[in-house]
């Protein structure tokens, strides 16, 4: 379990660093995407697409929309991915 969680964190960080040019040192779990890391709402769809690709699943417009909209911190992303993977 532990290792798969770390794996998720690792992969999310790679997405944020490679695809959004963020500084890895700033990616603490409670860092907020918008205020701390300077992403904005315009990035959210690109983030969803990048996560879909990295984790090879589809984020549904019907089912996941609410959860996606509620994501604020990096930890929220980890939680979302873990829940999504448990679902599959």
């Amino acid at each position: 379990m532990e290792s798969s969680h770390n794996n998720v964190e690792e992969k999310v960080k790679i997405v944020l660093v490679d695809e959004f040019e963020l500084d890895e040192a700033e990616l603490s779990p409670d860092a907020t995407l918008y205020d701390d890391l300077g992403l904005d709402s315009l990035d959210s769809v690109d983030l969803v697409v990048a996560l879909e690709k990295a984790f090879n699943f589809k984020i549904s417009r019907e089912k996941d929309e609410e959860t996606i909209r509620a994501i604020r911190t990096i930890n929220d992303i980890y939680d979302f991915i873990n829940a999504k993977q448990a679902d599959i």
């Binding site: 695809e19 959004f20 040019e21 990035d43 690109d46 983030l47 697409v49 690709k53």
Partner: peptide
């Protein structure tokens, strides 16, 4: 523009 957008276009 972030690489994420360019990658999205490419895909």
């Amino acid at each position: 523009v972030k690489p994420a957008f360019f990658n999205r276009l490419k895909g």
